[in-house]
Design a binder for these strands. Structure first.
Length: 274
DNA sequence: CCCCTATCCTGAGGGC
DNA sequence: TGCCCTCAGGATAGGG
């Protein structure tokens, strides 16, 4: 599932592929994926717009258009943004086809339709809460030890729940929360307020470490994730705990534990993680 | 405040 | 070969 490293990989590639390109025409699929505005308005606004920049915020991809709007994508569980030849056969669940002025097409497909497409000035989307307020970017200078302490120290919830909450730290999902906890030596079911200063510091170091490493490997294609060229990442081969319940910990050999924490399948090493 | 559950969805995989 | 069931989970809403 696309989390920060996968979304960042898509945003970087998209930047080189579509910045400066003009949208010539659009074709829409399932209306429920176009959350805001209604599909008819979206289809009316896009043609003629030029893409000026592509950025990432949490798990959102924002394409700034020359009209002042942002075309925003959230990939949900199974969303794919693809840049391909306009003549190629679209995937079964394609919800947006934007023909570009270079003969290629920007496509969004999403089998499960947990993703969403938004369009409007960013400030409008934020004010209307269509684009949620997100927490600190873990790869930015704002992600200080003090800032993470503020997220963790004030709550009694589990580390897993706190780190999955996009309002605290933006961009983490099930894979990288488990990976960061393993690297930091912290059990995901630990209550935040019981963490030692050293454990909070370990998490502060581990979170960017697992994300940077995953970006270097172009994301984890554990299942459905593909980049904009429909290619897999390779970080799934480097994951230490996600998807490895019952298998030996790479660090100590102890079989990894698996249980549901905060409503999510969670894997950890009972020996390495306290 | 926090937790759990249901909801939205399809496809993959297991059992028979 | 195929049917039924379960499971996967990002975000959100509602109940306890």
């Amino acid at each position: 599932m696309p989390e920060l490293p996968e979304v960042e990989t898509v945003a970087r590639d998209l930047r080189t592929a579509v910045v400066g390109r003009r949208i010539m025409s659009v074709r829409l699929g399932h209306p429920k994926v176009m959350r805001f505005p209604v599909p008819e308005v979206l289809a009316a606004i896009l043609p003629g717009r030029r893409v000026e920049a592509v950025t990432r915020s949490g798990k959102f991809i924002l394409c700034a258009l020359d009209g002042g709007e942002d075309l925003v994508f959230h990939l949900g569980m199974t969303g794919h943004l693809l840049v391909c030849d306009a003549q190629s056969e679209p995937a079964r669940h394609t919800h947006l086809r934007a023909l570009l002025d270079d003969g290629r097409e920007l496509r969004y497909d999403d089998a499960r339709r947990f993703g969403r497409i938004l369009l409007g000035p960013r400030s409008t989307l934020e004010d209307s809460r269509v684009l949620p307020v997100l927490g600190v970017e873990p790869l930015s200078d704002d992600f200080t030890a003090v800032r993470l302490d503020e997220v963790l120290r004030s709550t009694t919830r589990t580390v897993k729940a706190a780190l999955l909450d996009q309002r605290g730290v933006a961009g983490l999902g099930n894979i990288y929360v488990d990976e960061a906890c393993h690297l930091a030596g912290v059990r995901p079911q630990r209550r935040c307020h019981t963490l030692t200063r050293a454990q909070r510091a370990a998490l502060h170091a581990a979170i960017p470490a697992v994300l940077v490493s995953a970006i270097r490997n172009r994301g984890s294609s554990t299942d459905d994730y593909r980049d904009i060229w429909n290619a897999r990442g390779s970080n799934q081969e480097r994951l230490q705990v996600y998807g490895r319940g019952g298998r030996p910990c790479f660090r100590c050999g102890t079989p990894l534990k698996q249980a549901t924490v905060a409503g999510r399948t969670t894997v950890w090493c009972h020996s390495c993680q306290r």
